[in-house]
């Protein structure tokens, strides 16, 4: 079987023409093809929203979950079959709104899953309401007088939660993004890749052009992604949005922290015991009868 980008294609996306998510899909397909991972060895877990439809346009196995629950589902899959490449993908509403609790704990847990967030700052699929990364004052149908909440800072949140691989790109930077996804897949542990993925329909302010003017490649400004303090400082800069690898550190992934966790995928293990009574009696022998 030839593994190329075409092997990872399926239906033609129904996203709006120009949608940032096209670039994300392309970068993901490119990364997997570059890594020579067969589509059947990959599971893409998505959530709800425009971004959630990515599974149906992707040639690997897909699990299209409920809103915000990509990471728990991906965790279960990876634990059951560690041989699979497990990617989670969703929008900012999915990952930073309804599912933000799972993000924090996935960072702490360091499960070997690559999480790509298509951050467009609006709820596109429900017609453009304010989202967790919408800027303060953002006017939309749900906040006609302007958003009253400051936008979430997902990467700073992830770094503070113990994330071991944190990166960022604009969806139009397909090669940069594909490289970051490859890095995330190879990284032994959890990786979060935030992608500015413009909504061409509901956000006329933060366009591809706008992002181009506001981003800086981290390495171009001398950033050391292995330095926690530098990463926090970079993420706090108000004058620019960094792209590239922001932070990476070595920390034992979940499977190394779990006691005696099998090296072979659990799904391939033989049954715990053929004889159910033997399983039972291993733990619950009758108490020894008392004799005088």
């Amino acid at each position: 079987m030839t593994i190329d980008m075409a092997a990872y294609e399926r239906d033609h996306p129904t996203w709006c023409p120009g949608c940032g998510d096209f670039g994300v899909l392309k970068a993901l397909q490119k990364a997997l093809a570059n890594l020579r991972i067969a589509p059947y060895e990959t599971v893409l877990v998505s959530g709800i929203g425009c971004s959630g439809k990515i599974t149906t346009y992707f040639g690997g196995y897909g699990l299209h979950t409920t809103h915000g629950r990509t990471l728990p589902a991906a965790t279960g899959i990876k634990m059951a079959n560690r041989a699979l490449t497990v990617i989670a993908a969703g929008g900012d509403g999915d990952g930073y709104g309804i599912g933000v609790g799972h993000l924090i704990h996935a960072c702490r847990r360091n499960i070997d899953v690559t999480y790509i967030v298509m951050d467009n700052g609006v709820y596109g699929n429900t017609k453009g309401q304010t989202a967790p990364t919408s800027p303060l004052g953002f006017a939309s149908s749900s906040t006609p007088y302007g958003s009253i909440d400051v936008p979430i800072a997902p990467l700073a949140l992830a770094v503070a939660s113990g994330a071991t691989y944190v990166a960022q790109a604009v969806s139009s930077q397909v090669d940069l993004l594909a490289g970051l996804v490859e890095g995330g897949i190879k990284h032994p542990g959890f990786s979060l890749i935030n992608v500015f993925s413009p909504c061409v329909t509901y956000d006329k302010a933060r366009t591809y052009r706008w992002w181009k003017d506001h981003i800086r490649l981290a390495e171009d400004i001398g950033h050391d992604p292995h330095d926690f303090t530098q990463a926090v400082a970079l993420l706090n800069r108000e004058d620019l949005q960094p792209v590239g690898l922001i932070f990476q550190k070595d920390s034992p992934p979940l499977f190394e922290r779990l006691p005696q966790f099998p090296v072979s995928p659990l799904v391939s293990l033989p049954p715990i015991a053929e004889d159910p009574y033997r399983v039972f009696s291993r733990y619950f022998e009758p108490y020894p009868a008392y004799t005088q």
């Binding site: 629950r69 728990p72 589902a73 965790t75 279960g76 990876k78």
Partner: peptide, 15 residues
């Protein structure tokens, strides 16, 4: 919420 979703993920993958 996460607990049952993890169960579903694992069962989907066959364990």
């Amino acid at each position: 919420i996460a607990a049952l979703m993890m169960v579903i993920g694992a069962q989907y993958a066959g364990v």
